[in-house]
Every structure is written in structure tokens, then in C-alpha cells.
Amino acid sequence: MARVAFVTGGTRGIGHEIVARLKADGMKVAAGYSGNDAAAEACAKEFDVMVVKGNVGVFEDCQRAIAKVEAELGPVDVLVNNAGITRDTVFHRMSPEQWGEVVRVNMDSLYNMTRQVIEGMRERGWGRIINISSINGQKGQIGQSNYSAAKAGMLGFTKALALENAKKGVTVNAIAPGYIDTEMVQAVPEKVLQSIIDQIPVGRLGRGEEIADVVSFLAGERAGYVTGATLTINGGQFMGG
């Protein structure tokens, strides 16, 4: 029987590529999104997948989303926590709203989404939770104290949850992408973008499908011995812990 996967923030950017790959792997896939209905409709049509609207920062929205997916596709076997936002500014000018919104969507969403599926995964003795962090959660970034804090917190969450569920056949891993060629990155001014590329040893931006390839492995049957890991995919830009 085909596994069921739910990808938050799955209709654009890296999430779009993850949805494409998991669907190609033969999974039944649902893509979560928060606002862009046109992109969601295009994703649903392109890949023949289910799309579900909601705010991952709101627990009740996540309850409703998972209930819809499980009613239509079956119990969720693979959860990819990919949704994220930025509200960049230096900390001494950061408003409570800029801090709180980023923490809710990037960090609280881990609890809100994973809490809906973890008990079922444990009962069935199989599950894959994959958290999409960021290079900036590892090394920090000027103007992103909120984002960096949330993405770093994701790594601690990954390790703790991996320990709790290892004996139940549920693996929990994180991926920390560097700068990937998405709409968000392409919106960066050309000179700034070039200065970023100049800092990447392989000399280019990453591709969304390169992240999706690693998600595909972690979501599969052969990754049962990989848990609590953080896989850095950044072209050599940062090699620290």
C-alpha cells in the first residue's frame, strides 16, 4: 500500500519540489499552503495531489488539515515540516509581531503539525518526520534573529523527538538547506545575490530538487537507521555543527 505524505508549504519553492519527488516515488501526497490559491490549484493539477489550506501556526488549523488528509488519503506516514516565513530586520528594531509571527510559523508549527500524527505513527510502528531547517539556523544571520532562533530550535526538537521515538520505528531528521534557487531567493537584489553566490564554494545556488532528493531518501524504507541527524546541503558554505 502506498505511503501517505503531508508536506507543509508544499505548493511553492522547495516544498513544490518535495511534493513532486514524493509523488514520483509513488506516495499519496497532500500539500499544505496558507494563502496563494492560484499556486495551490496549479500544484494540485500539475502533480494530481491533494492541497489543504491553513495556517501551520494555528493548532486548530493543523488538526483540521490532518483530519482532511486522513479522511481522503489515509493515515499520514511521512510528515515534512517545510513551511516557513521571514520577517527580517535587525533585532534592536524588531517588533513583537515580527518576532512572534516567525516563531509561530517556523517553530510552533512543529508542535502543531507533528502532534497530530505522532501517536498514529507510534501505534503503526512506522513513520518519517523530516524538518526543513536552514543554514541560518546553524550559523546565524544579520537581520534574522527571529528566523535563526526558530530554525535552530528545530534542530533541538529533531534530536529530542528522534530519541523518544526510535524504538517505535519513527525516524526524525532535519535538513538544513543553504541558498536555494527559489522565487524568494531570486527576489534578492542582483548584487546582493551575487555576493552570496561568491561565498558558496561550489559557485552556484542549490536546486530545489537537490533538497527533494534527500527528503526522498529520508522518507523511504531504507532510511530506518538514520534518525536525529541534520543533513547540511549548502554547497560547502557552512560546515559547522
Rank of each mutant, 00 (worst) to 15 (best):
I196P: 10
V172R: 01
V192H: 12
N173P: 11
I175V: 09
Q186F: 01
Y179K: 00
Y179P: 08
Q194D: 14
A187Q: 11
Q199N: 11
I175L: 14
T182D: 06
T182Y: 05
T171F: 04
V172W: 00
Y179S: 10
M184W: 02
N173D: 11
L193K: 15
A174W: 07
I196H: 05
T171M: 02
Y179V: 14
S195E: 13
A187W: 00
P189L: 03
V172G: 02
V172K: 01
S195P: 06
N173R: 06
D198I: 11
A174S: 15
E183A: 13
Q186W: 00
E190V: 15
P189H: 03
V170N: 02
V192T: 15
K191R: 13
M184S: 07
P177H: 11
T171K: 00
P177Y: 06
Q199A: 14
Y179I: 14
A187H: 00
G169C: 10
T171G: 01
T182K: 07
A187G: 02
Y179A: 12
Q194L: 12
V188A: 03
D198F: 04
Y179F: 15
V188I: 15
T171A: 08
D181F: 11
K191D: 15
Y179W: 15
A176I: 07
D181N: 15
I197F: 07
S195T: 13
A176P: 05
I196L: 12
N173F: 05
V170Y: 01
D198N: 14
V170I: 08
M184G: 03
I175W: 02
K191V: 14
T182L: 10
V185W: 03
M184V: 10
L193N: 06
V192D: 13
I175D: 04
D181L: 10
K191P: 05
I196F: 08
P189D: 04
I175C: 06
L193A: 09
P189R: 03
Q186P: 05
T171S: 10
A176Y: 07
V185C: 03
V188W: 04
A174F: 05
Q186G: 04
E183R: 08
M184Q: 09
